[in-house]
């Protein structure tokens, strides 16, 4: 009971903090609204945009700048080493593993998540009672990586084939007649794919929900017109549905790609990057926080965000096009 009281008090602090911040904001609004005439817009811009810009500057822009500078320094950040850290990334023996794995992740996980999400969205669109399925498929999104690690540990667990199995995957393939299932997480190179399955498990729900909504948003007269023209099944899909939701598809794909690039939790909890499953983001964490080589860690971070830039540029170009039309 004591614990409960203390716990509620903690939650109370949280609620109080929210109340205080909202109260302050109302006060600022009240004062800001007094601005008249030409001052009106500048005051509004400062009040509305200021907090966000400040927080972003402190929290993301300055650190990004520091990281970039740090990537040209040595392990302890005391000497300049030019491009040595970058040379290390791309030439050191063994590093090709995490570079290749990251590229595999970047292609396979987003494409499969989006593809499966789209398939489900299309199928669901034809079902009556879709909400239960939707919820259950979406559910993994609500689970932490720590939790996901435990859940999938129960699936990939290896036991000697002569013993009762604890891992579901081993048991299933044994039921299917395989006598000696591999030790899944050691099973190169397929273990990479097994880790991607976890990411896909988490992301398909997101892709499905967004794409399903986009499909529903296709106006019925477009579909009807196409049907009057005799389009059905695959033709309807490729000539009407896909073009109509192209934009959404791209957004889903890029969102998942960005998430995949930054992914390190799954690899860290499942294999810690061993057994040929290392990826750039986990190598970055290991270099910066385990081996304390800030130079290499920073350089890997820069490689990551340079890798994402094309995705962002592509999205920005699309956005600008859209805005221009509007």
């Amino acid at each position: 009971m004591e614990e409960l009281g203390a716990g509620l008090a903690k939650v109370g602090t949280g609620v109080a903090a929210v109340a205080i911040v909202l109260g302050l904001l109302l006060l600022i609004f009240f004062i800001g609204a007094r601005a008249k005439g030409r001052l009106q817009s500048p005051v509004a811009i400062v009040v509305f945009l200021g907090p966000a810009i400040l927080l972003l500057a402190y929290g993301l822009i300055v650190p990004a700048f520091r990281t970039t500078v740090g990537s040209f320094q040595n392990a302890s950040g005391q000497d300049w080493v030019g491009f040595a850290n970058y040379t290390w990334i791309f030439t050191a023996p063994g590093n090709s593993t995490f570079l290749i794995n990251t590229i595999l992740w970047l292609i396979i996980a987003p494409v499969l998540s989006t593809g499966l999400g789209l398939t489900l969205a299309l199928l669901l669109d034809r079902m009556r009672r879709e909400s239960v399925s939707k919820s259950l498929i979406f559910m993994p999104m609500a689970i932490s990586f720590v939790g996901a690690g435990i859940i999938w540990g129960l699936i990939y667990e290896y036991r000697d084939p002569s013993k009762p199995q604890v891992g579901l995957l081993s048991q299933v393939v044994m039921w299917l007649g395989v006598e000696d299932p591999p030790n899944w997480l050691l099973w190169q190179p397929f273990n990479n794919f097994l880790l991607m399955v976890i990411m896909i498990w988490i992301q398909v729900g997101f892709a499905m929900v967004v794409l399903s909504a986009a499909i529903k948003a296709i106006p019925s007269d477009v579909v009807e017109a196409a049907e009057l023209d005799g389009a059905t099944g695959y033709r309807l899909f490729s000539k009407v549905t896909i073009p109509m939701i192209r934009g959404t598809l791209i957004v889903v794909l890029t969102t998942i790609m960005i998430a995949v690039l930054k992914i390190f939790d799954i690899v860290r909890t499942m294999t810690n990057g061993n057994f040929g499953t290392q990826v750039v983001a986990n190598e970055m964490y290991a270099q910066a926080f385990v081996a304390f080589d800030v130079g290499r860690g920073s350089a890997l971070a820069v490689v990551l965000f340079v890798a994402v830039i094309p995705l962002i540029v592509y999205n920005v170009v699309q956005l600008r096009k859209e805005r221009a039309i509007r």
Binding site: L56, P63, A281, M284, F305, V308
Partner: peptide, 14 residues
């Protein structure tokens, strides 16, 4: 667009 692009920064580095 600047804010949109900030999504790329890995938070570990912050």
């Amino acid at each position: 667009f600047g804010i949109f692009a900030l999504q790329v920064i890995p938070l570990q580095m912050s």
